[in-house]
Design a protein around this nucleic acid. Structure first.
Length: 265
DNA sequence: ATGTCGACGAATCGTCGA
């Protein structure tokens, strides 16, 4: 069994102690750890600490903002960072990295733009970024059969993914045009594993730092583990682990990690 | 607008991004 995890850490430097505590608390059962919002350049990534935990890492970092990494106990190959040659202004923000894991499946780790709010140029950037992402995924699905795509998508799929659909109507992450983008991603032939296994369960992956939102469970589900159809039957469990999010010291990320268990061959 | 984090540059706080 292989456990893959997506975790927006909101600064790897600030989260390193909590992250290592969490991995130990879980008896080091995470095989492939996909991180978002590193906020460090590649040379400042804590490679040694991860090596001591048994992980080798592919890192696509950036100063202050963004940055993604894949840390794995299984051998990684064919690391690819960014979208490729097209879309230079889209590639300026480091949000996407992919690898082959143990020659068993292909893994793509993403950190989608937040977008701030409608009318902000960052919102237009989010929509444009998703257009590039979707066209990139089309080629990716043609080239790769067994595919796991996971990360922080910064969009709720529907009203089950928000704590109060009325209060949050037309706020960032819930806009109809944003949700249409998520549906287009899924329609490429990808399955939202958490929703597929637990269709009625309201489980969030992000809670604002403000107002003690996590204690009231006022959050949103914006982090996903998607798989191609050929991998659906390999998924045995999907879990959002609240342990680190509810720790008071060291300070948590505003996201909780989501973990999928796969049985491949 | 508010609330709370983290990074940064230039201070011991203000600004930006989430």
């Amino acid at each position: 069994m292989i456990k893959v995890c997506s975790y927006n850490v909101n600064s790897i430097k600030s989260r390193l102690l909590l992250l290592t505590d969490w991995l130990h608390k879980r008896n080091s059962d995470i095989d492939v750890l996909c991180l978002q919002e590193l906020k460090v350049t590649d040379d400042n990534f804590p490679y040694e600490e991860f090596q001591q935990l048994g992980y080798s890492c592919e890192v696509y970092g950036q100063k202050t903002y963004n940055g993604v990494a894949i840390c794995s106990k299984l051998p990684l190959s064919n690391a690819w960072k960014g979208f490729g040659t097209i879309a230079e202004h889209i590639n300026e923000q480091r949000r996407i990295i992919s690898v082959s894991v143990a020659d068993k499946f292909t893994l793509l780790n993403v950190y989608a733009p937040h977008g701030d709010e409608r009318g902000n140029p960052k919102y237009d950037y989010k929509l444009t970024w998703y257009e590039h992402f979707i066209s990139y995924l089309k080629d990716y699905l043609e080239a790769n059969d067994k595919l796991v795509i996971l990360g922080d998508f910064n969009i709720t799929r529907d009203d089950l993914d928000v704590y109060d659909e009325r209060a949050l109507r037309d706020t960032i992450g819930t806009m109809p045009e944003e949700r249409a983008l998520i549906e287009r991603v899924l329609q490429l032939g990808l399955i939202d594993t958490y929703r597929a296994l637990y269709p009625q369960r309201r489980q969030f992956t992000w809670w604002s730092y403000m107002g003690g939102a996590v204690w009231k469970d006022q959050g949103m589900r914006i982090d996903y583990i998607l798989v191609s159809k050929s991998l659906v039957s390999s998924i045995t469990e999907v879990e959002v682990d609240m342990w680190s999010r509810k720790k008071k010291t060291p300070k948590p990320s505003d996201h909780a990690p989501i973990i999928a268990s796969l049985i491949i061959d």
